[in-house]
Design a binder for these strands. Structure first.
Lengths: 202, 202, 202, 202
DNA sequence: TATGAATGAGGGTTCATTCAT
DNA sequence: AATGAATGAACCCTCATTCAT
């Protein structure tokens, strides 16, 4: 079988990551075992270790990819939007349109935030976390500044601080999504209105 | 025929919980071992198992107590405040006055949110989490309704939804506190202003 | 059972070391598994790890103890001997009287020399090996110099070099003891005669 | 209908053995992995298994060849020497002229003696070891007997025992060569003198 | 109550060998 | 003949929990 295409290998990696994600989602990173991933993926243990050198690496790759995918998606969409307002709208809507009680989404949220908290204890991971956070804040900050330049948004607003506020809100809402009676949509929409109202010039 | 008093036992339990908290904070629940707790507490393993029947129980007790302490504290303080406004103020200030870069506080945040996410996977724990959440929402909801009745706050506001929004904001801010460059104070204050402005009658 | 005397613990350690030795003897350090040692000792795996933190540590302790025991034995016996000659005699006889086809002795030899060769690849172990070697050479060197001072031995002899020669011979003979048809006794006796003859003043 | 010539195959085998030796030298037989050999040789895993059926077989072949090469070399050289004395001289000099601190030589020594000790535990290997030893002893025994017949050496000397003594010395010296401060040359020369002096007729 | 030695299932990882291509 | 991905038994070690003292 050997001498196999890069795509084949990439596909295998994805397969492993998919299985790993489900296992981490179901049990958490620490509690999920390599045997779980083996069982779920249907591969052999050795095969998995051919693609990833440790359970931790799988975890990292999983989260890095998710993050990267997000960024790519954002940037792709932003290209289609002309105004800063519509970009902000798009960002909010990305979360507003997410089905809050979708099993997969909840699992993703739990795994994702667990990873963030976990990273808190490892300087290397914390560094990555910071970088990612900075990029996210920049993403929004850029939009706000663009809006300010275009006269869409208030001029006298600390744009970076306001960008931070955006992610604070998003993370707050996401976190509460794990409560199945959380009025996700309503709360987020009101927060969106509140946020945009203050942002936009009267 | 208990040989030792209840107070003695309670004291011992607190001692264990303190040590356990530090261990969980430093390494996380899964990674911290009973041996860590033994070493930190200076007690013997058997002694600890006399007071708690498992590591999980320690974890649970720890978080339950923290939550309870919070409630007691809130209620104690609310008794001193006359108006709903001042109660809301107190709540926000409880978080505004917290030193966001205090090591202990950060550790507490991490352990606390990890526990929440962890609880997601266990129906019993999730139930507890829900109850706690409901109580927190009620706490704020009661204040808002009180304020509405007193004419302090807008009448046409969905009070419970607004209460949910409060905790969403708080959790968002708390979560971001783990980033050492997060402008915790500024973001929270602005969110507070935004929140209260909309709440109060013009 | 806990709170146990130091002797008890030392005894346990010895027990483990005994089992480990037999396993290493039978299969070699790398090939012998912790499960082998567990099975042979009749203890649980955890128990063994309570006394030694790794398989390597067991190996090291085993060899260190053997070496130390040897030194103690030598020094104890030297105290009884008055002349340098009789000390040299004692040393040679220690090896001459060893039963060359004794199973235990052969196993010991194999394990011991394997350890030496193994140590070659680890700077720390190599250092220990060197130290041990230096002590052994000193031991003989001291005797030779004592003999020279007393007029028993030739004056114009490089004592340290001659001490090195002693251990070279011993190790050579030991190594050959693994061949069951090796005329251990005869070869060693002749080498002894040859060695002492050149050492002693005419 | 072999596609490739025997020479080609032999060449490949040598290539593998060379790589294997370096790996075994660097890490030891047990610790060196097939992947190490693969990496070092630049061949594929499958290719190596086409030439050798197991790691053990590589090890065996390696050592057998080394031994055989030695014998061929000895016999080739002996053909050039007329007297038994000069043959003994040659043998000693083969070791005296070896650079005792040559990295390669030390590695060879370690691998070689490790193999001997390893063989101790496998009846088949032990048999091979014995045969080799017997051949080595015969080699020297023949020389001594030749010398005795020619009147070069003492008549009343147990030639085989004396041959055994030769290899005992050589192995002792070799073994000590792993200590970088071992006065290899001096010790061996003195042992040689001692050995030959007793061998030769006065 | 307190002690800490003992237990042993189970964890992550390795690696000689196989075999489809 | 050559490739290297796949296999899975086996390895060393951990650790929550138990229990004799």
């Amino acid at each position: 079988m050997p001498i196999v295409s890069e795509e084949y290998k990439e596909e295998k990696k994805e397969q492993i990551l998919d299985s790993a994600f489900e296992c981490f989602a179901k049990k958490g990173f620490q509690t999920a075992t390599m045997d779980d991933i083996v069982a779920h993926s249907g591969m052999s243990k050795g095969a998995i270790y051919n693609y990833f050198s440790s359970k931790e690496e799988i975890y990292l790759d999983l989260l890095t990819r998710a993050t990267d995918k997000n960024f790519v998606q954002y940037n792709k969409h932003f290209a289609k939007h002309r105004t800063a307002s519509s970009k902000m709208d798009y960002l909010f809507n990305a979360y507003l349109s997410a089905n809050p009680i979708d099993r997969n989404r909840l699992e993703y949220i739990v795994v994702f935030y667990e990873f963030n908290l976990h990273s808190t204890r490892d300087p290397d991971l914390l560094k990555q976390l910071h970088d990612r956070k900075r990029k996210l804040v920049s993403l929004v900050n850029d939009i706000i500044q663009e809006g300010q330049e275009q006269g869409e948004f208030k001029q006298d607003l600390a744009s970076e601080l306001y960008a931070e506020r955006f992610w604070t809100i998003i993370d707050g809402v996401n976190l509460h999504a794990v409560y199945d009676d959380f009025p996700y949509y309503d709360v987020l929409r009101e927060l969106k209105d509140m946020y945009l109202q203050e942002l936009k010039s009267e």
